[in-house]
Design a protein around this nucleic acid. Structure first.
Lengths: 212, 212
DNA sequence: TCTATAAAACCGACTAGACGGTTTGTAAAC
DNA sequence: GTTTACAAACCGTCTAGTCGGTTTTATAGA
């Protein structure tokens, strides 16, 4: 077999094994020995392809990011003609995709952040660009950010096994987040609803400024 | 010193040390020896109070949950007279509180879940009850869940250092989530949109400028 | 109050195993 | 024949948990 393809096969085998271990046993169980065992490679083989454990995590992160990058850009191309806010719609769809796909990129994120928090800067910087694009196109940027935050909340909470919501509810909620028609007309409705006591309630829990 | 209070002091010292270590060095650095060193106790002393490391994490989780439980119930008592959906408002305020308080409960959660994912069932079950109460009182349950999800998204993403948003934006967004007046009239906007087209146009121009 | 005994809190050295990473050896590719 | 891909044994460190012993507090009889 060709040397280059042999290396690539081994690298992919190791990364697949890492994902499988994280998904099955949790991020805490991801060790180099476990990767070797799971992938069929020897430990030396794994270490030949990745010099350190951090390099494994980084490669895993990058591979998963590339995968969703692809999903994201093709979705964006499709939506940019039809949607008034294609970047937001794309991100919402991508998050839903990440939440649904079993071998989620998010699993790699979790694994990475515990041992090597510095790796998190890669996805964060990428996310910053996307957020800028979302704000740019939005009629109501804060609402757009909140729709994004809600999608992330659904993703992360279910990812950590702490979501109180069922699968069905998750799907329905993603659907609603994506439906632009249900997120219009929120700019300043207070004037028309003056008779409602809602505002007063909000003031009660409003935090004194200048804390932190 | 009284035996009971001596024990309690030691237990609290250990838990305080654990929080400090997690906050300063990250969850990966939380070891029993580190807890002993940080708390001033000996390792034997720590192990006398907590038989295993999991017991330490569990106690930590429970203590932090109790803390926010208290915040939550006092907030609920205050809001239940004025707010049309006091449970949702309480949860949103509590999440914001968790996000801003430096020694966050969430840090304990992260530390816990990596090594002992089973511990996550405690907060999840609690959250299920709260979610039921939120749905119960809501005119639009799905929207209520989405507001909750958005708050969780803000909390979790910033907790993992992957939030692309600034502190200011976070605070502003929490404020908007809490403002009931800005979340009304979303039930079936498709029908309304026809007779009130001015709404959408206005939103395009009027940036929300509300401060918390 | 003094004393004897039990029990709880605490100490710190130790162990067994797991972990990340290294070294040495071997066969295939170039 | 040199480099590359991999295997297998190995090393030093770190970690959760143990254990025998010491100090402090509780109990109880005189």
């Amino acid at each position: 077999m060709d040397n280059a393809t042999r290396s690539e096969r081994s690298r992919n085998a190791a990364l697949d094994a890492a994902i499988a271990i994280i998904a099955r046993d949790g991020p805490g169980r991801l060790t180099l020995d476990a990767i070797a065992r799971e992938s069929g490679l020897s430990k030396g083989g794994v270490m030949h392809q990745f010099r350190t454990k951090e390099a494994v995590l980084k490669a895993l992160l990058e591979r998963q990011m590339a995968h969703f990058e692809q999903f994201s850009s093709s979705t964006l191309a499709e939506l940019s003609k039809s949607s008034p806010n294609p970047h937001l719609a794309t991100q919402l769809a991508t998050v839903r995709e990440a939440a649904t796909s079993p071998n989620s990129a998010a699993l790699a994120l979790v694994a990475a952040m515990v041992e090597y928090p510095g790796l998190m800067s890669l996805p964060r910087e990428r996310e910053k660009e996307r957020m800028a694009a979302i704000k740019e196109e939005a009629a109501d940027p804060d609402l757009a950010m909140l729709r994004w935050a809600a999608a992330m909340g659904l993703l992360l909470s279910s990812l950590f096994g702490m979501s109180p919501l069922s699968k069905d509810e998750h799907q329905r909620l993603y659907g609603r987040l994506l439906d632009d028609a249900r997120w219009t007309g929120l700019g300043k409705p207070a004037a028309r609803l003056a008779d409602k006591p809602a505002r007063q309630a909000a003031a009660k829990v409003a935090r004194p400024r200048k804390r932190v």
